[in-house]
């Protein structure tokens, strides 16, 4: 089932012919050329873009226009890229940021 709005009563028909492929966490996806990474992934049913650096909790888009940085991913090796502001390109390699070891946390056994 597609999540794309192909026909819109006011905005008209969507031109969805220019399709390219990219990978997200080693899985191949297809999207429309120059659409945002966040939109392309959501159209594929992908909501979780990363794990929170400290808690590991899943996170997805929040504001969708670059203000909140909730959608940060790694694009072609560059960390902290906002998926909502990044147009997808052919063969783009995208990965999630995973939970990190953090030095500010108290690592003694009783806190595990």
């Amino acid at each position: 089932m597609t999540k794309r709005i192909i026909d819109h009563p006011i905005l008209g028909k969507l031109d969805d012919t220019d399709i390219i492929s990219f990978t997200f966490n080693n899985k191949e996806y297809r999207g429309l050329k120059n659409e945002s990474l966040a939109a392309a992934l959501l159209a594929n049913g992908v909501r979780t873009l990363r794990s929170h650096e400290e808690s590991g909790a899943p996170r997805g888009i929040y504001c969708n226009i670059g203000h909140c940085f909730e959608c940060r991913v790694t694009v072609d090796g560059q960390q902290g890229v906002r998926a909502c502001l990044t147009p997808i390109k052919e063969n783009m390699v995208v990965t999630s940021n995973e939970k990190l070891l953090t030095t500010v946390r108290d690592w003694r056994p009783e806190n595990e």
Partner: peptide, 21 residues
């Protein structure tokens, strides 16, 4: 913070600009 929670403007941009539900 659950994926699927977004600002109302985010839903607007997804729907009208990117044409993704």
């Amino acid at each position: 913070t659950l994926p699927g929670v977004m600002s109302v403007g985010a839903a607007q941009v997804m729907t009208n600009v990117h044409r993704v539900k």
